[in-house]
Computed example of a mutant assay.
Amino acid sequence: MDSQRPHEQAKWWAQTLGWEVEPSDEEMIRGLVAAGRAREEDTLVHDGVLVWKAGAALRDPEHPERPRLLFQLVPEGKTVKNRTHLDVRVGDEERQAVADALVERGATVLHHAEQGPFQWITMSDPEGNEFCLT
């Protein structure tokens, strides 16, 4: 996912999904910089940890072999509707409480919708990427 603040986005989504941000290998990064294979400006310190500036990934800790989400640094902000978005299943009983908690953490409610027996809340994350709570 394109992002202007990939490490913050990865942290936000990890908390939202109950996943974890993949740990950084600070020793490897320092070694690559020292060997001249990477530049110091390719890195930054995020939450006290040396990381690659270009992005951050998160994964399901119970199933690390499954697909992960990667947030990559891009210079431009989001300007159009997402072509894809995540569908976060929380259940009918929890949907509004989860939406309220996500709003407190920086999400925005875009609209409530339903089709037949299905209901969902379309929201956007702190950078404006749309997703649904089902």
Rank of each mutant, 00 (worst) to 15 (best):
E26I: 03
S3A: 09
E93S: 07
T134E: 15
I29T: 02
H7Q: 05
G36P: 12
R59D: 12
G106L: 07
A10W: 01
A54C: 07
A38N: 02
N82Y: 04
D60G: 02
Q115A: 10
Q115K: 12
D47K: 03
E20K: 05
D125T: 07
G48V: 03
F118T: 14
H7A: 01
L110V: 15
Q96M: 13
L86E: 07
E104D: 14
E94N: 14
R68K: 08
D100L: 02
A107D: 08
Q4D: 08
A10T: 01
E127H: 09
Q119R: 10
A34N: 07
D100K: 04
D47V: 04
T79M: 10
T134K: 12
W120H: 14
F118N: 15
T16L: 01
E76T: 03
V49Q: 05
E93T: 09
H46E: 08
V49I: 07
P126A: 10
S124W: 14
Q72T: 08
L17S: 08
E20A: 06
H111L: 13
L86N: 09
S24G: 09
E127S: 06
V33R: 04
E104Y: 13
L102A: 08
V21F: 04
R83T: 05
D25P: 02
T134S: 14
R5C: 01
F118H: 15
G91M: 06
P23L: 04
D125L: 12
E8G: 01
R95T: 10
E27H: 13
A99I: 07
H111V: 11
L102Q: 04
R39Y: 00
P6E: 01
G18V: 04
D92Y: 10
W52E: 13
D47P: 15
H7E: 05
V98K: 13
L86T: 06
T84S: 08
Q72D: 13
D42R: 02
F71G: 03
A35G: 09
T79E: 11
Q72W: 11
L17R: 11
K81G: 12
A38Q: 04
V33K: 04
A10P: 06
G36N: 06
G91T: 07
L44P: 00
A99F: 10
V74C: 11
H63G: 12
R30T: 06
P6S: 03
L70F: 07
E130N: 12
G48A: 09
V88K: 03
A107S: 09
W13T: 00
Q96T: 13
D25W: 06
V103K: 10
R5F: 01
R83A: 10
A10I: 00
V33H: 02
D2K: 10
G106N: 04
L17D: 13
A10Y: 02
M28A: 11
Q9D: 03
N82D: 11
E104W: 12
P126I: 05
P117N: 15
R59F: 07
A14P: 15
A113Y: 03
H63I: 14
A56T: 00
F118W: 15
E41A: 00
W19C: 05
T79L: 11
Q119M: 10
A99R: 08
L50H: 02
V51N: 01
E104H: 14
R66P: 03
W19I: 03
K78S: 08
K78M: 10
E40F: 01
W12C: 04
G18T: 07
F71V: 07
L110P: 15
V98M: 08
D60V: 02
V74R: 09
R37G: 11
R59P: 06
